[in-house]
Design a protein around this nucleic acid. Structure first.
Lengths: 353, 353
DNA sequence: GTGAAAGCGCTAACAT
DNA sequence: ATGTTAGCGCTTTCAC
């Protein structure tokens, strides 16, 4: 009476076409489906004997729980969405590793969303979270996406736990994991100034970007600490990409009074800029010093090797994932974590003259 | 009689805590849930009036179908797994873009799995597919993962449609999307030979890798075409990473009779190798010519800029995604696609002397 | 063209 | 410690 006409015998007969279900395991272990479920989720609440039989039956059948059924019932996906502004930027790869390894240990999977500067994609992934495909999200893109359709003051419906990583999200009451961008930029600026540079150019990130705002303030503060005047003509717009660096270089080499040092707010821009500078017949660092930010893998092998700010990328990813897991499991989570950066001195920056 | 005691009124009252379900839409549009479902999946089978009312109700409620319920019932996830050997390699970013955009147009989402050289991760993702979390997979890692537990000749159970991308999988009867690695490597080798180079070193990929085998054969064939002898001492082991390039460079600079040209089978290795060569006081290309493979973004801005083989990365991704979608939708799919590569001539290679 | 009803596979509430 | 049962939200026969 505990069985209602299955299609055919699911026993381990050579070619079973269909996957084992919890029922198959229960029958084989001579327990109820509830016990099988518990043996997996809360083993301590099942007798050792029953557990052993269940485990054996699972091994025999090759049973793997159906995630859709599990999710439908428990309303948990054990999936986390990671939102990136640009997957092509190598800066993110180690961060992703850090996130993934931490999530994995806690039994969560990771879905990556590459916004690629496209608002439609953002809408797409907003719908994604709204549909309940993920339990939480780690945002590296610097803002929340539109979760409520009516711009009213209504609290976001269907909201899930979020963590901001690298790019802080100012008015959001969520854990923020980052470095001290302002301090790091200030430190680099002062480093250049200490080497005698007086005309220090700054290649920016995208306008409005929070990293950009922080780093720019660090640049300004660094100039001030060094007693150097701020010259708006030395600020060159960029967006962290190689191409932006190439363009910034073009704008520099044509000038009559050139800066003696350039602080690029990403390594990719620094590398692109050096390329243009070379092509124009100038030498780095002899004619102009160039500094970067991030310390991506290519920074150490660039020619000349790049003086830059090292970010603990893997640790950033780990910290963000931990904070999200805390949230997901109802534990208190840190409100803000700031990891330390390092000034990495290589060959692209030398004292003036 | 079509309603069984809901918790509370789900109408658009300011703060509805819970997400709209298909029932809510059905009630509001005054149709059955079946009609709502059909209006979404097969609009042509629903009367225009009913469809309009359903669409309006969906807009009003903000209804988003629950993917877990949909998957549980239909056994389709509309998700595709993309398996990468190494996400940190920038070579993959544009490929991912190509895959993602094509999948997205067809209504599929993408889950990225970065194997990172770890067998455990491979097992993890094998379980992932076995659990039915994805409808199909695109493999860039050069082999299938263990799908059947018993090594018997039984056909893989729970198998899903697969496509091999870039790294062909020899004995698998699945669509293979790739470039002609052998021809490309041969072409580069002959290019170097045509410039007068007689001692052309080769920095390899990982042993056993299919790309490596093909490219090595291309190198051998290229030497032969040019009438040059093969010298095993000129083959330097690598694994496509920057670090491998650095090590390869170290093994080169110490030699008494150095090669005059080096063909690196990835741009990352070429860039790492140039770094070491510089540090040893040699010049590229004056003292030694260096060629790469892939044409990643950094190749054009390296110093000197890198002569390399251009791969149509985005198109490769698109082609693989299309082939998989064909399979998923029961259409015939191409068995093998080979996209064209280009020899990109830049500054890191010059004629001998 | 539309509705009623079954049920995908699991977990959790409630019994025992 | 274990079993029974309801039901997560959807798609899909099967009727009409």
């Amino acid at each position: 009476m505990d069985d209602v006409g299955q299609k055919d015998e699911p026993e381990q007969s050579g070619f079973s076409a269909r996957a084992a279900r919890i029922q198959d395991v229960a029958k084989l272990a001579d327990v109820s489906t509830a016990t099988v479920s518990r043996a997996l989720a809360t083993p301590e609440r099942v007798s050792p004997e029953a557990r052993a039989r269940v485990l054996e039956a699972i091994a025999k059948t090759g049973y793997v729980p159906n995630p859709a059924a599990r999710t439908l019932r428990s309303q948990k996906t054990y999936m986390v969405l990671v939102v990136l502004p640009d997957l092509a930027n190598t800066f993110f790869s180690k961060i992703l590793r850090g996130i993934e390894e931490t999530l994995f240990e806690a039994g969560y999977g990771m879905i990556i969303s590459d916004l690629d500067g496209s608002p439609e994609k953002e809408a797409h992934f907003a719908a994604f979270t709204a549909a309940g495909r993920v339990d939480g999200a780690i945002l590296l893109n610097g803002h929340l996406f539109g979760q409520s359709r009516d711009g009213e003051g209504s609290p976001a419906r269907l909201s899930i736990p979020l963590v901001a990583l690298c790019e802080a999200i100012p008015n959001a009451d969520i854990p923020q994991i980052e470095i001290d961008n302002r301090a790091a930029a200030s430190r680099m600026t002062q480093h250049l100034a200490a080497l005698g540079h007086k005309r220090i150019a700054y290649v920016s990130g995208p306008a409005g970007n929070i990293l950009e705002r922080e780093r720019f303030q660090g640049y300004m503060g660094g100039l001030e600490s060094a007693g150097l005047p701020f010259d708006p003509a030395l600020v060159i717009p960029g967006d962290y990409t190689i191409e932006a660096g190439v363009r910034a270089g073009q704008s520099l080499v044509g000038r009559t009074t050139r800066p003696t040092a350039v602080f690029c707010t990403s390594d990719e821009m620094a590398i692109g800029l050096m390329r243009t500078v070379f092509s124009a017949g100038l030498k780095v660092p002899d004619d102009i010093s160039v500094a970067g930010f991030d310390d991506i893998e290519f920074a150490a092998v660039a020619e000349p090797s790049l003086t830059t700010i090292h970010q603990p990328r893997r640790e950033l990813g780990q910290a963000a994932a931990s904070a999200l897991i805390d949230l997901l499991q109802g534990r208190p989570s840190p409100k803000r974590i700031r990891l330390e950066t390092d000034l990495v001195i290589r060959d692209s920056v030398v004292p003036l003259r």
